[in-house]
Design a protein around this nucleic acid. Structure first.
Lengths: 250, 250
DNA sequence: CGCAATTTTGATTTTGATCAACTTCTGTGG
DNA sequence: CCACAGAAGTTGATCAAAATCAAAATTGCG
């Protein structure tokens, strides 16, 4: 193990050393609740920062899996595509979130990860992460939490896709984004979308026209302000009520 | 760690000791590719077998998370329910599959797990599993694979819910079941559904009438034989083609 | 600045939901 | 073992939500 971390230290490939212990995203990313000593172990783990230009892929479906990635800066989408042309956006990732964990099971990625704006990620080589987490139980536990959180998130998504009508999905989407911006210390109710209506639609299982109409309608109702990509939530309470209240039909 | 495994050994609560090393589901469940020595370590890990009668819950949403469960025998569904009455089936689990991993992230389960027939599970206390996997890297790796496989599976599900039409979903569902029966050595094309049309519908984001109509239509086309719960796939090749071929629209 | 991409809005069509009636099945108790 | 009640499943008619088609307006890259 030691030679691995030394190698990383000697090998600042693209950027100055990552230094989780200094990172302001600390509590959002992998190293939650570690002691200072443990944290500095992790510093050696994160071997590399990588810049990804808007529109470029961080990894593609079929790529050999070697690492997971913590978003340091920017915004990503992941999408799966089936043999036929069909494809669907499965997630959006913002700073502090970890992506690429779909690759663990078969050592091959099952989706494409595309940067929606110029972005930067911390690369965490997975077998090093596994080695270190054998030594640092707190890290192992946290890794399991991160993996499990992804499972829970996906289940919520399935619920949304299976049981909500179009406008509800859009509301849920906006509230979820807002929630995540709050966690990052940004304004809860005023943010810019980084993705197109089409990408939102794909994510929500809707056509882009339907997303656009939902935005317009929510605006008419005074619930949100939509100004191209800028979204302002005008009445979060009522939005939440619209979600939880609706006819428990489907 | 030792006292934990001893405790387990001394404590055959409901059934004779589980004995992964003897289990015929071995290669489907947790202990893949372990050495004999490693396997016997795991024997001590699986502390208990538990029977769950048809209709009973293995765990419920909100329950404190302590263990994951390998299905030894039988069939389960998991369903999430939101604050309002809305609920949705998120997965089905058959023998050899592992469930309960949604609970890791917050040490609380996020769904209900209900037995669809009289079933039996092996209970794997999660913090013991974590402890042991600190000692057995192969096990740690395998655990990560199992977690990741769940993520990949969910992504496929999202694709299905977001991008397929009703009949395609039903076909995908049947082919998936068939696939999993094959992996268990059962007939690929002739099996009994353990769930109702309503549960299938909930899982697929459809109403039960729609599922029923899809079955009828597929039968008219000579693609499947439906006889109450018994399903025979008459033309797997064509079914697959229907899935991959369809207009790559949505 | 100009052109391609994105977005909005409207008209129409399609899919699947809903409502309803009827049949079949299952399991329980007499 | 049969009768029966409730659950599960099928099928048809109608309706509503979202997709599709189409056109115009806006935006933002290069």
């Amino acid at each position: 193990m030691n030679e691995l971390s030394r190698q990383a230290t000697l090998n600042p490939i693209h950027a100055p050393h990552a230094a989780c212990s200094q990172c302001n995203l600390q509590e959002l990313c992998l190293p939650v609740g570690l002691t200072t000593a443990e944290l500095s172990t992790i510093d050696h783990l994160v071997s590399e920062r990588r810049k990804v230009a808007r529109g470029d892929a961080l990894f593609c479906s079929g790529d050999h899996f070697t690492a997971i990635y913590a978003v340091k800066l920017g915004f990503f989408k992941t999408e799966v595509l089936s043999e036929d042309g069909r494809h669907q956006v499965t997630s959006f990732y913002m700073a502090g979130e970890v992506l690429g964990m779909d690759g663990i099971s078969a050592e091959t990625h099952h989706c494409d990860a595309i940067a929606l704006e110029d972005s930067e990620v911390c690369l965490i080589p997975f077998n090093q992460l596994e080695s270190v987490s054998l030594k640092v139980p707190t890290l192992q536990r946290h890794l399991h939490r991160v993996l499990s959180r992804e499972i829970v998130r996906d289940q919520g998504m399935m619920m949304m896709l299976g049981a909500m009508r179009a406008e509800e999905r859009v509301i849920a989407f906006l509230l979820n984004l807002s929630q995540r911006y709050i966690a990052r210390g940004y304004a809860a109710a005023d943010f810019n979308l980084r993705m197109t209506r089409e990408e939102i639609g794909s994510y929500l299982g809707l056509k882009l026209e339907t997303v656009s109409r939902a935005f317009s309608h929510l605006q008419e109702e005074g619930l949100v302000q939509v100004e191209k990509k800028r979204i302002r939530l005008m009445d979060t309470a009522r939005l939440k009520k619209l979600l939880s209240h609706d006819d428990a039909s489907r």
